[in-house]
Design a protein around this nucleic acid. Sequence first.
DNA 1: CTGAAAGCGCTTACAG
DNA 2: CTGAAAGCGCTTACAG
Lengths: 331, 331
Amino acid sequence: MRKRPSTLADVARRAGTSTAVVSYVMNNGPRPVAAATRERVLAAAAELGYRPNRIARALRSRTTGVAGLVLADASNPYFGALARHVERALEGRDLLTLVGNAGYSAQRQRHLVERFLAAQVDGLVIVSSDSVGDVAEVAEAAGVPAVYIHNGPAGAPVAAADNQQAVREAVAHLRGHGHRHVAFLAGPDDEGPVGVRRAAWHAAVDGDPGAELLRCDYSRATADALTRRLAAAGTLPRALVTATDEQAIGVLSGAWAHGLAVPDRLAVISLDGTPESAHTAPALTVTEQPLQAMAEQAVALLFDEAAAPLTPHAALVARRSCGCAGQDLGS
Amino acid sequence: MRKRPSTLADVARRAGTSTAVVSYVMNNGPRPVAAATRERVLAAAAELGYRPNRIARALRSRTTGVAGLVLADASNPYFGALARHVERALEGRDLLTLVGNAGYSAQRQRHLVERFLAAQVDGLVIVSSDSVGDVAEVAEAAGVPAVYIHNGPAGAPVAAADNQQAVREAVAHLRGHGHRHVAFLAGPDDEGPVGVRRAAWHAAVDGDPGAELLRCDYSRATADALTRRLAAAGTLPRALVTATDEQAIGVLSGAWAHGLAVPDRLAVISLDGTPESAHTAPALTVTEQPLQAMAEQAVALLFDEAAAPLTPHAALVARRSCGCAGQDLGS
DNA sequence: CTGAAAGCGCTTACAG
DNA sequence: CTGAAAGCGCTTACAG
């Protein structure tokens, strides 16, 4: 075992042909090969257990068949779900995916991009952290296409959903349940997609002074703590739109710990709509980010000249946390 | 812009040296370079924005600096968390990670391994699906080290925690809360780590005929549905150990939908202990899989001759779902 | 339809 | 300490 792997030359020798011919049959082109020759080559390759060395191919043909995916925060299930869709979209183009987690650090993001470029990736999909330089530019300067998804620096094209429309629907839905004041739980600042969502909420409530703006980090833990604090102070709103599922789940957890009933005492709608949101207690009503469409759009932007920059819709999925009940809306 | 990237030869030309010398300074070896020469080379590299082509390096030196990670199911947060730890452990050895999702399919798992081998990965970490052939063998035959983590075929070495001890602790903890009969929610069959957990539970309850064995898929949705069904039939146990967090979360969701209080009517302990378990409603008591230790162990097994196959402990983290209350155990 | 050969960008013996 | 050159395993003009 563990002998030297067979090469193209080994196959050519055994089949009694040139390496060029072996290459042509392995790649089905670019030039034709006589049927009989092809058979001999295929047989020789099988006998030797030949596996083409993609690295050698890459060096010569200047294409590796590998793309890089840079995540802002891999521990957030939303980004995890997004990553799976990007992987699948890339796989649809026969590309392998190299992943890296920037952990919200500009420096790590830049470092990952550099390493991926050194690995000669064919393209880069980036979920940017907030307020970080335009790393796509350095990729483009190296001749490697790069695209942002979900979040990118101002000005750069980003494959993202129509977040404004989603927020409008969420606010309208809660109002439909009779809530006059709809609060919003934003992130620590107004950057990135959450900034867009926050602004859209502000527009939707039209300056209603009873509509509170809350802020916390994008984690279950901080949203949980915030909810407990407000509950203890008796200042929890009755209707809330959260910027992310992680926050919504933390709110549910904090409300439970305080014995506050959702949706009766607090109605909640979240704006991500990850798979996790379907089986919380109670199940979350969400506007569902069209992750597959976003991923496909990003990949199209990367490789298709004519890709149109559409903005897919995030549909509202009514479950329990908003006050909808009726029959089993559980999934 | 977008001009041809600079090569080693470009740098050598500009620095007035040979390519060998440039290589020596870029890699800090394997041979010494005079300080003055090194300065000239570094300056030239900086001026040209030289970025070493790892593909060319890989072809020559037969090491790519890339490892492959094959996941059984990327949509399960447990595997997601495990993946992050593997990535980090790999990064600690300066390795990039290529990820692939087998989606519980033997064929896809095999296909991914083949593609990763073609990409000349330096090693393979595999979260195997149940009852699938030994794909690590095909990697080893190609001279590439491979290791299983969490789950591997019978006989193959696997980096995994002490699941038996974890189950024993979970059962004992529930008994400490006064429960005589502790039920177990297993997977659809007895394969893989869940089979081990199921058997350990069986031993721990010592044939107690009142201790029920339940089964469902490893998803929130099926555990949710099962819980509703049992609740409707009035046959839900009072104390339950679930094989996985996904199942536990589904149980919580189903119990909520039926108005059943956890932990009063149903006490639950889950055996994964992913980050998600800390902020459910109520917060889950778990035995926490030592993911970091497992990941580091897997990587050590891959590259260190002398790696000892230890079996790290999964500690019990008491939160609310088991009946523990006291002060804030929320996180 | 097929072969001989150059070359992708590196690393590393081999000489000096 | 440094240079000239071979070679990693492919792909692809260039000739036939």
